[in-house]
Design a protein around this nucleic acid. Sequence first.
DNA 1: CCCCACCTTACGTTTACCTTAAATTTCGCT
DNA 2: AGCGAAATTTAAGGTAAACGTAAGGTGGGG
Lengths: 234, 234
Amino acid sequence: MNHIYECSILLVDDNSQLLSMVTHLLGQEGYQSLRTAGSCREARECLAHKLPELIILDVMLPDGDGFSLFQEIRMKADIPILFLSARDEDQDRLLGLGLGADDYLTKPFLPRELILRVNAIVRRAYLSGRSSLVSSPILTLGERTVHFDQAVVASSAGEIPLTAKELLILKKLYENRGKIVTFDALCDAVWGDGYYTYENTLMVHIRRLREKLEEEPSHPKYLLTARGIGYRLI
Amino acid sequence: MNHIYECSILLVDDNSQLLSMVTHLLGQEGYQSLRTAGSCREARECLAHKLPELIILDVMLPDGDGFSLFQEIRMKADIPILFLSARDEDQDRLLGLGLGADDYLTKPFLPRELILRVNAIVRRAYLSGRSSLVSSPILTLGERTVHFDQAVVASSAGEIPLTAKELLILKKLYENRGKIVTFDALCDAVWGDGYYTYENTLMVHIRRLREKLEEEPSHPKYLLTARGIGYRLI
DNA sequence: CCCCACCTTACGTTTACCTTAAATTTCGCT
DNA sequence: AGCGAAATTTAAGGTAAACGTAAGGTGGGG
């Protein structure tokens, strides 16, 4: 997964093991802003501070049941909620969904299924039609930052635009950052097949990239040469 | 539940008994516009005629599987889909949700649960516009303000109307404001697939938009060109 | 010390986009 | 239906940024 969801999630469950498991899962999926609460009280504190975009709520909590908390929350804001429950009681499921929950999942559940259901809810609630909550990755090199979705490299001095070819090369290097990318692989990424005479051209583009990325283009710190092999981004 | 939303539903299943049962249920719940199909072929006919707001789709169909049909549909429009499946196979469930389904229900299911899950999907997909979470569809560019719902751009000098195509392009850019939107994405948003000769046309529309949005259309401040990539709204 | 791989710069070309105007289609109105 | 206006598409000439080429320079490894 290569995208980042700018979507904060609040996770309410009293089982700390499950909390960390789910946090890890969602983190891997690209959800950056995760908070957890072990009780209704903690959840209320979290919500007072800042409203999340999604709440995952266990029905059974030490200081009250999730349904009441749910109704409290919905009084204030229409935040999507996914219920978790240890008991597969039809009554509970119907109650939860009947109150207006967005989904209801019974433990034990497949980790992957939780992720997918969370994705489905987020997509419907926030991403229908638009993709603005999904930001493509950015790359930080010392003082400067490359924003791939804007094709610019930003620094304190201002923004320098990147051209189409430069962006293709940089993307390829970024996808393999740390590793050496061969000339052939780079040419292929930019021109497709039939790149017989482009090796020299590639060098010129690399030079131009260095002028935009490096403080001393002739003594690169980030976009390094691997003599006889290719280039490497760190 | 007494809500009646003008929400047409297409039900695809080869079990006629189940079809009538669900139709009855949904009818009682207030869903007025229900259509049914017993096979992929019938479903395609229905869809060609008119797109519904929700599709309930059995995975097993006499002339193909629901997953393929699902992908066909999603290629064209982002209609919410709820899968039904006779087998409680984890793999199927994960596949369905992974493809982007909104929910997945295993037979036999509680009639009430189906209703509630349908309600949940409809609520998220179509009724959340009134919630405070969704930002109002207004765009401010310096002196001027774009009102998407009225298709006009207002300024101190007066109101300038936007044409249909201009609005589509601007919406797409607005949904991804800050990011570069590729030509392909823009053409796709305006004309759908098969935009072979439209790139030039797109440029003309962009020019028109600039004449309505910018103070100096030839030196745009808001609707910027990313040479070789696309356009970008800030 | 020499060769090879890469760097660097300048310059010519090309491509992608702009702009305008004319042609065509769509759509509302009578 | 048929007319007229508005919207959309097509077409063609112009321009500058992006690209590619070439040629001389640099430096490390054998």
